[in-house]
Design a protein around this nucleic acid. Structure first.
Lengths: 254, 254
DNA sequence: CGGCCGGTTGAGTACAATCAATTCTGGTGG
DNA sequence: CCACCAGAATTGATTGTACTCAACCGGCCG
């Protein structure tokens, strides 16, 4: 099984990098932030929960009494009165249910079968207040999520559909590289409409744009969920293109 | 001077809410997260820095050796190879320069004259590792920034220009309410092109859309930077409208 | 006074949304 | 193993909306 099914069950796990230490030498890989001791200490207060594909993990407005740490599977955090608009995709080792204020502000739903640790907020808080190192690691993870969200916003700021999709694919790829997954092929666990809700395009536009990328031999699908970038140069050109012509530049180079 | 010039100089300040305690009774107001003691302890390691309007605070790729806490003024955090695309506006009490990895991933520039505390990362880290409460408050602030960034992404996911601008104005308004500023009028410290770079519209579109809102008596400008919402119902209707017609809804209510 | 900066406005165009078939796929039961 | 179904995905035709290019305005500064 190629896509990150962590085999260990030592306890909650957070993957990330220390925002202030440049110990990762540009490999793009993340490391486990929690020590074995921390993980097993958290394991004590955590319970393991499972969700079927399509099942709600929590709803917006629910009392936020737990945070989750995905062990396997993929989920989405979404909002918008219509329930469309995906805020983030949640992958193994991600922490979520966080970033609310007494109540969840987004909803979360499993896109594939999901197994996760459930950490009650009450217990977690008291643990946090006594464990400075753990808090520090949470801070690292939050910085990471913040960056991710900013990249998402960046993506959405782009007008052209091909740039948006290429950026999205790049995010997926980097994520999988960071996990140490075999690069070469990109796994797309979510369906086209989820992608549309994330990148801000209609389902039709996603499909059309993928089609166009395939026709131009930039990417190639093995099946609905696995694809390969067949022309990296062209791919990068699309990404760079977004940075190129932007409006607003009132008086730049003639 | 109406716009939040904090008169005290007791030390760095973080405004926010505890994400897990619903002590704010829906007032939308935020409170100081740091105690006097914490603030003065931070003040010891902080220096006060000033930036002229338009001046760079840091550039993307610079060694990230300090984080900042704005005392007065407004700045922007921006990126994009062209330097367009604003990631966030930074207001008094905000914490930034954070969320990077050894180096700043965005650049920051003062939009108005800015006064800020500068906290060297090295000192801050050791302080953090010993002060669990401070760490906790940083976590609270990060959650807040994360939510803010998600709202930004949400805004950018909207297609129509009027909805985007209305959402933006609502964010500004809530921010000012949270600070306890006189509501009624909204202060817009940034110029039209900055707004465009934030909401993902061309300068022309921003101007046009403002014009249209004014013509429809939804808002009214006192001058370039001060406006009032003259028809709250219409305004809310625009906001709600975004949630209404969305694509992708494949099989919802008949 | 002239230039520049921030902003407004107009005409034409490009791009994605929409509506609406149609095809493909994977799963189910005969 | 195949026929069938429902949901996912593709594709086509048309329309809406914001971008682009470009002219133009008004204030401010030297």
């Amino acid at each position: 099984m190629a896509f990150a099914e962590p085999s260990d069950r030592k306890g909650p796990s957070i993957l990330g990098v220390d925002p202030w230490v440049s110990d990762t030498r540009k490999t793009g890989k993340k490391r486990e932030l929690l020590s074995e001791a921390e993980r097993s200490r958290l394991a004590v207060i955590a319970s393991i929960v499972r969700f079927k594909k399509g099942e709600d993990i929590y709803r917006a407005g629910d009392r936020a009494d737990a945070i989750f740490n995905i062990i396997s599977g993929v989920a989405k955090s979404y909002s918008g009165k219509g329930g469309d608009r995906i805020v983030a995709f949640l992958f193994p080792n991600d922490l979520f249910g966080l970033s609310e204020e007494g109540r969840y502000t987004n909803a979360a739903r499993a896109l594939t079968p999901v197994t996760a640790y459930r950490l009650p907020v009450s217990v977690l808080r008291s643990r946090l207040s006594r464990d400075a190192l753990l808090e520090y690691h949470v801070i690292c993870k939050l910085c990471e999520e913040l960056r991710q969200s900013q990249r998402h916003a960046f993506l959405l700021g782009e007008r052209r559909a091909d740039v948006r999709l290429a950026t999205f694919l790049q995010m997926l790829e980097q994520l999988q590289v960071a996990k140490g997954d075999t690069a070469g092929e990109i796994y797309v666990p979510m369906d086209r409409s989820d992608i549309g809700e994330y990148v801000g395009l209609s389902l039709a536009a996603v499909s059309r744009t993928f089609g166009s990328l395939v026709r131009h031999n930039v990417i190639k699908f093995r099946d609905r969920r696995w694809l390969k970038i067949t022309d990296r140069a062209a791919f990068d050109r699309i990404l760079a293109d977004g940075a190129g012509r932007r409006t607003v530049r009132r008086g730049r180079n003639p």
